[in-house]
Write a protein that binds this DNA or RNA. Structure first.
Lengths: 238, 238
DNA sequence: GGTAGCGGTATGGTCGGACCACACACAAGC
DNA sequence: GCTTGTGTGTGGTCCGACCATACCGCTACC
């Protein structure tokens, strides 16, 4: 007779916890009450609490751990990139958007970051990137190279200073990790491809070091398009 | 003795379902097996299955419904924007990134979309946007105006043709809905602000209709910055 | 006195079973 | 033929129990 039908127990718990997070009552690093206590306090079952916490965990806001130590229990630990990456990856798989759109979005993001980074990058940023590049000089297999590549691109985004853009960059790059890895594995001359990618990276780094934002942006766009174009699109006949 | 410690029951279920989704075995519109059957098939408890499904639901990939009809049960229904919006909103609340970064990201996205839209928008797109604008001419309160505003901006992004960018645009706009609403409510002369926003919208629409991408991008950037700058940043003293 | 070992305890992780609420399908009755 | 009731399959919820882990503190031994 309430008119509004019972709004689902786990949603109630979720709303409650989100309210605490939004209001700033629970901040990163804080421990949430034990599941049993939360359940009792909200008049919900423990299962309802667990479902809500599981959702928040998937959204990269909390982390749970058993035990009694100060690090155990459920803690507020923001990790947006991982959560965003998984969502994008899933929706990519389920055809929520085509791969070409992802390429365009990646170009947009990384051009933007490159422009910012050319202006804002510190000396330490440049050194960090250089270290990533040096690490990529080894004879890495596609998987290891891919991870190092992610680190380099994310380092650029990070030195741009915009955290959201940086997280989105990481998320998008990780969402296409599988596809790009496939492309690397199917490449006949992997060492040659690897060498070319390394050279492109060095050029981007040089442009950033010189503070030439437009050139850096152009270079990174060409770098991304060449790689994505390699075989990401067209599932049609050869 | 396996070396690898049992990888959590619900994660096993999650991995299984994601594999089905990624492989294309389960596609949008398809029905998943009933929870009980899935549990039996995977040798997991129903609770483990429910936690996994809850995560997927939060990620905007499935939708659950009771009953026996063809629409009931758990169905693959991609809804990325809502999921992304919630993640961004949560992380905004939890200080994963500052509001100014969100503003910059929004400007980047919408400039990009405006440029695309100026080239690609169809006549129908323009008419649709015009309809949104007309709807905003009524004496709307902030909440209603805000929703119409979202619809207009998303319509621009959609007519740009990049689905991922479009979804990200909606997600980011929705993540700041609360903040912007607060700004609207605190505005002394709401009708005047509303009128100005309307005028800016008309200018953007005109630029898109004329196919002038740069002008459209400039106008939308000014529009966004003026509004976000209103009181989104600086929580310091007046 | 120090230290190694052991049990206590708090926490999340998992399971099984039961019941409820809902929505449709179908048959019985008017 | 239409309505009504009953059955059935589905997700939603709860309870209670037990497990696995990690720390804490006590005890007993050296």
């Amino acid at each position: 007779m309430t008119g509004v039908r019972a709004p689902a127990a786990y949603e109630m718990v979720l709303a409650h916890v989100e309210e605490r997070l939004t209001s700033g009552e629970w901040r990163p690093g804080d421990r949430l009450p034990p599941e049993r206590e939360l359940a009792a306090r909200l008049g919900a079952s423990r299962q309802a609490v667990r479902e809500a916490l599981r959702v928040l965990q998937a959204q990269g806001v909390i982390r749970s751990q058993v035990g009694t130590g100060s690090d155990s229990g459920t803690v507020v630990v923001p990790a947006p990139a991982r959560a965003l990456g998984r969502v994008l990856q899933l929706h990519l798989a389920v055809d929520s958007f085509p791969v070409d759109d992802v390429t365009e979005a990646r170009v947009m993001l990384e051009r933007f970051s490159a422009g910012l980074a050319a202006r804002r990058r510190s000396a330490a940023d440049l050194l960090g990137m250089a270290a990533e590049l040096d690490a990529m000089d080894a004879d890495l297999d596609p998987a290891a190279f891919s991870d190092a590549d992610i680190a380099f691109h994310v380092a650029i985004a990070a030195s741009g200073g915009n955290k959201l853009v940086s997280e989105l960059t990481r998320a998008i790059r990780e969402s296409v990790r599988g596809v790009l890895l496939g492309a690397m594995h199917e490449e006949r001359d992997w060492p040659a491809l690897r060498a070319r990618l390394r050279a492109e990276h060095r050029e981007i780094h040089a442009a950033l070091a010189a503070g030439e934002g437009v050139r850096a942006a152009d270079r990174i766009e060409a770098h991304i398009r060449a790689f994505h174009g390699r075989r990401l699109s067209r599932p049609g006949p050869a």
